[in-house]
Amino acid sequence: MNVPQIQIQSTPARLGLTINKGQQTIRQPKAEQSIEQPQAEMSIKQRPGQLTIDQTKAWHNIDLKSIAERTKETAQVGEQKWMEGLARVASEGDELMRIEDGGNPISAQAERNAGFEFEVKPGGRPAYELVDVSYEPGGAEISVEPQKPIIHTTKRDPQTSLQPRNVTGFMEQYPDLKIDWKV
């Protein structure tokens, strides 16, 4: 016996897609910035120095002396001459005391005391060695007050552009179903 048969043939559907990728760009412009640095405030106070010039020795070198100095020098010379004279008189007295030893001490003393000696000192020491110069510098007061920088910044937002993704669908193959009978 022949049994009829059903023959089924199916074709599946196929979907096709066209995809355009999206694109995104981001650009970040640099921020604008300006910086100013004000000068620091500074003050300087300079106290004057102390200059001392002592030319007393130079004046003495050219024999220009004060009355007090002259009196002092004269007293020193007088005391020295008095001491020398005292020593001379004592020595001469001792000579006369020993007159019995012989010789002629009176004429020897008269001969020694008849003249006098003096000394001439030409010039003196150079004047540049005789002037005392001293300098004491004055102090300086320095104060500095720094100033903070002035900074101005203008920010820039990012610039973006977007092309969205695009998907398009289409049928590559349509579905199909065929049914057939065979006897």
Rank of each mutant, 00 (worst) to 15 (best):
P4S: 06
E111S: 11
L86F: 04
V133H: 11
V77R: 14
K178I: 12
R156N: 10
K72D: 11
N61W: 02
E111G: 08
Q147D: 13
D176M: 08
T18L: 12
E100W: 06
S66D: 09
G49K: 11
T18F: 08
K155W: 01
E84A: 05
I106A: 01
Q7D: 10
M1N: 12
V144D: 13
I106E: 00
P126F: 06
L15Y: 07
N2T: 04
T160I: 05
P146E: 07
Q55K: 08
W59D: 09
A127F: 07
P137C: 08
A127I: 09
D101H: 02
Q173K: 14
W59E: 11
T52K: 14
E129Q: 09
Q163M: 04
N113I: 03
A90V: 00
I106Q: 01
K65Q: 04
E172M: 15
P122V: 02
T18H: 14
E136C: 10
P4I: 03
V144F: 11
V120R: 14
P164E: 05
E84S: 04
S43H: 12
I6W: 01
L17G: 09
H60N: 12
F118K: 11
V120P: 08
I44T: 12
I142C: 13
K81P: 04
N113K: 09
F116R: 15
E92Q: 00
L17V: 15
G49D: 08
E36S: 15
Q76P: 00
Q9M: 11
I26V: 07
Q163D: 05
D180L: 07
I179K: 08
A75R: 13
E73T: 02
G115Q: 14
F170R: 14
T52C: 07
I35C: 11
V167R: 09
N61G: 12
K182R: 11
I150H: 05
L51M: 13
T52L: 11
I35Y: 05
T25H: 11
E136R: 15
W181P: 01
N166Y: 08
Q173S: 14
E92H: 00
I106L: 02
R125L: 12
P29S: 10
Q7P: 00
I62N: 10
P137A: 12
Q24I: 01
N2I: 04
E141R: 14
D176V: 05
M42P: 10
D157F: 01
V89N: 03
S161G: 08
K57V: 00
E100I: 03
N61V: 02
I62K: 13
A58H: 06
G85Y: 01
A40H: 05
G78Q: 12
R47C: 02
K21Q: 08
T52S: 13
Q173A: 13
E84P: 02
Q37V: 12
E136D: 14
E129I: 01
S43N: 14
M83W: 01
E111L: 09
I62W: 06
N61P: 06
W82M: 09
V3Q: 08
D94H: 00
I26E: 08
Q33L: 03
